Simulated scan of single mutants.
Amino acid sequence: MECFRIQVIFAQKNYKSYQISEEEIQEISDDLFSMLEWGEAELFLFGELIYFLPETLVFEFSKELIKRTKFYRKIPENKTQVTLVIRDCTNYFIEKSQVEQAEILLNSYEKLIESPIVDVYSRKEYLFVEGNYQFLIGNIEKGNQIFENLAIMYEKLGYDNAASYMREKRHK
């Protein structure tokens, strides 16, 4: 499986000599789906495979991952990785204009970052994804407000380039 992980990374970096075959994708998908509990390696692998798998598999794996979050909450590093993978899956469905899947995952993503401890990074990342989702469903005003709020936050923290980027994300 280590060789396959390297192939995925090279394929993502657009190294032309590394291709991932349908058979390899099917094999790794079967392996991931058959595991009752994913560890760090499986979380990483799924996160790397998102853009290579069919949409239906990405959604099914995401739902399974969310169902198993009680197990992952025991280990903070795994919870962080689960949160990042669900963030990426949500973005994937937003990019694909799949409203229903994006909404389900966005709601799950929000629940994953609920915590009595303030986690500014996760909250900021969630707002970015939520802003893109609002644009997807046609709620331009709400999406623009989210990105404006993010821009103001970045300005107050002294990150002018990030603030400019957030303002560029707004729709006219």
Rank of each mutant, 00 (worst) to 15 (best):
Leu57Phe: 15
Leu57Tyr: 12
Leu57Gly: 09
Val58Tyr: 00
Val58Met: 00
Val58Asn: 01
Phe59His: 06
Phe59Cys: 04
Glu60Arg: 05
Glu60Gly: 05
Glu60Lys: 05
Glu60Leu: 08
Glu60Ser: 10
Glu60Phe: 13
Phe61Arg: 00
Phe61His: 00
Ser62Met: 03
Ser62Trp: 05
Ser62Gln: 03
Lys63Phe: 11
Lys63Pro: 08
Lys63Arg: 11
Glu64Val: 08
Glu64Met: 12
Glu64Asp: 12
Glu64Gln: 12
Glu64Pro: 09
Glu64Asn: 14
Glu64Lys: 13
Leu65Asp: 03
Leu65Trp: 04
Leu65Lys: 02
Ile66Ser: 01
Ile66His: 01
Ile66Cys: 03
Ile66Gly: 01
Lys67Tyr: 05
Lys67Val: 07
Lys67Asp: 09
Arg68Cys: 05
Arg68Gln: 06
Arg68Ala: 06
Arg68Lys: 11
Arg68Asp: 06
Thr69Leu: 07
Thr69Cys: 08
Thr69Arg: 13
Thr69Gln: 13
Thr69Ala: 04
Lys70Ala: 07
Phe71Leu: 12
Phe71Asn: 04
Phe71Thr: 10
Tyr72Trp: 06
Arg73Phe: 14
Arg73Gly: 15
Arg73Ala: 13
Arg73Pro: 12
Arg73Gln: 14
Arg73Val: 10
Arg73Lys: 14
Lys74Cys: 08
Lys74Pro: 09
Ile75Ala: 09
Pro76His: 01
Pro76Glu: 01
Pro76Asp: 01
Pro76Val: 04
Pro76Thr: 02
Glu77Asn: 10
Glu77Thr: 14
Glu77Asp: 13
Glu77Leu: 14
Asn78Phe: 15
Lys79Val: 08
Lys79Tyr: 14
Lys79Trp: 15
Thr80Trp: 09
Thr80Gln: 05
Thr80Val: 08
Gln81Pro: 06
Gln81Arg: 12
Gln81Gly: 05
Gln81Tyr: 15
Gln81Cys: 07
Val82Met: 03
Val82Gly: 02
Val82Thr: 04
Val82Ser: 02
Val82Trp: 02
Thr83Trp: 03
Thr83Gly: 02
Thr83Phe: 04
Thr83Met: 02
Thr83Asn: 02
Leu84Asn: 12
Leu84His: 10
Leu84Met: 12
Val85His: 01
Ile86Val: 14
Ile86Gly: 03
Ile86Cys: 03
Ile86Leu: 04
Ile86Phe: 04
Arg87Glu: 13
Arg87Asn: 12
Arg87Pro: 11
Arg87Ser: 12
Asp88Tyr: 05
Asp88Leu: 12
